Simulated assay, not measured.
Amino acid sequence: MLKVVFLGPPGAGKGTQAVRIAEKYNVPHISTGDILRAAVKEGTELGKLAKEYMDKGELVPDDVIIGIIRERLSQSDVRERGFILDGFPRTLPQAEALDKMLAELGLPLDKVVYLNVDDEEIVKRLLARGRADDTEEVIRNRLEVYRKQTAPLIDYYSEKGILVEICGVGEIDEITKKIEESLGLNG
Results as ranks from 00 to 15, higher is better:
P10F: 13
P10K: 10
G11H: 09
G13T: 04
G15M: 06
R20E: 12
E23G: 09
Y25M: 10
V27N: 10
H29T: 11
I30T: 09
S31K: 03
G33E: 06
D34N: 04
I35N: 02
L36M: 13
A38Q: 11
A38F: 06
E42Y: 12
E42N: 15
G43M: 07
E45Q: 12
L46F: 05
G47Q: 05
A50F: 09
A50H: 08
M54A: 10
K56D: 06
K56P: 05
E58M: 10
V60W: 01
P61C: 09
D62I: 02
D63P: 15
V64M: 03
G67C: 07
I69Y: 06
R70N: 15
L73C: 03
L73P: 04
S76H: 14
D77C: 08
R79G: 08
E80L: 12
G82R: 04
I84E: 05
D86H: 11
G87H: 10
F88R: 05
P89F: 07
R90P: 03
R90A: 00
M101S: 04
E104F: 08
L105M: 06
G106P: 03
L107Q: 02
L107S: 03
L109V: 10
L109F: 03
D110S: 11
K111T: 06
V117Y: 12
V117Q: 12
E121Q: 15
E121P: 11
I122H: 14
I122M: 15
R125K: 13
L126H: 10
R129H: 07
R131W: 01
A132V: 06
D134S: 08
E136I: 11
E137I: 10
R140W: 09
N141D: 13
N141G: 12
R142Q: 06
R142M: 08
R142T: 05
E144K: 14
Y146W: 06
L153E: 00
D155E: 14
Y156P: 02
Y157L: 00
Y157G: 00
E159W: 08
G161Q: 04
V164G: 04
V164A: 05
E165D: 07
I166R: 00
C167S: 15
G168K: 00
E171Y: 13
D173R: 13
T176L: 09
K178A: 00
E181N: 14
E181Q: 14
L185I: 03
N186Y: 10
G187Y: 13
